[in-house]
């Protein structure tokens, strides 16, 4: 569904609590992360150089990724929703809508993140992958990102959303 809830109130800090995590399930998510990590590394989505090439509109590589990843993601997720598919554990699949509000958080927060993405050449997924690939200073960047998130947590009540 493309509908969204228009509201001036802040969205809930965290969605409804899931069931208690089980060890087997956690291993599965580790494996999914491993596969994703290998893909974004070998596909050079985590390359500082490729991100620069993308923001300068100088090459097709990153756009080729987007133009194949997004239709695949849209078709599969919409397929799951339309067929009212269930999880492998027979639980219902539900995707809570994001609240648009005034949209300030997406615009201003998005621009802040975009600036950081251009400088570090990495968004959060790539930060973790680059750490694993053995770039020690990325650990400092992750530390700075934690301070950034913590700063937002403090400023949250005073920021427009």
């Amino acid at each position: 569904m493309s509908s969204f809830v228009s509201s001036s109130t802040l969205p809930p800090a965290v969605s409804a609590a899931p069931a208690r995590p089980r060890l087997g399930a956690l291993v599965v998510y580790f494996v999914v992360g491993l596969v994703f990590g290998v893909l974004i590394t070998k596909g050079e989505l985590i390359s500082w150089f490729r991100i620069q090439e993308m923001f300068r509109f100088r090459g097709f590589h990153m756009y080729g990724i987007f133009l194949t990843a997004l239709p695949t993601a849209i078709l599969t997720v919409q397929g799951l929703k339309r067929s009212q598919a269930r999880t492998l554990g027979r639980a219902p699949i539900s995707i809570p809508p994001k609240q648009m509000g005034r949209g300030v958080r997406y615009g201003v927060g998005g621009v802040c993140f975009g600036l950081g993405w251009a400088l570090t050449g990495a968004c959060p997924g790539p930060l973790f992958a680059l750490l694993g690939s053995g770039v020690p200073t990325i650990g400092v960047a992750i530390g700075a990102a934690l301070v950034g998130t913590w700063t937002y947590a403090w400023l949250r009540p005073r920021l427009p959303h």
Partner: peptide, 12 residues
């Protein structure tokens, strides 16, 4: 850059 990534993603 790292700070902006953490602040921006949390905000957005």
């Amino acid at each position: 850059g790292g700070f902006l990534v953490g602040f921006g993603t949390a905000y957005a």
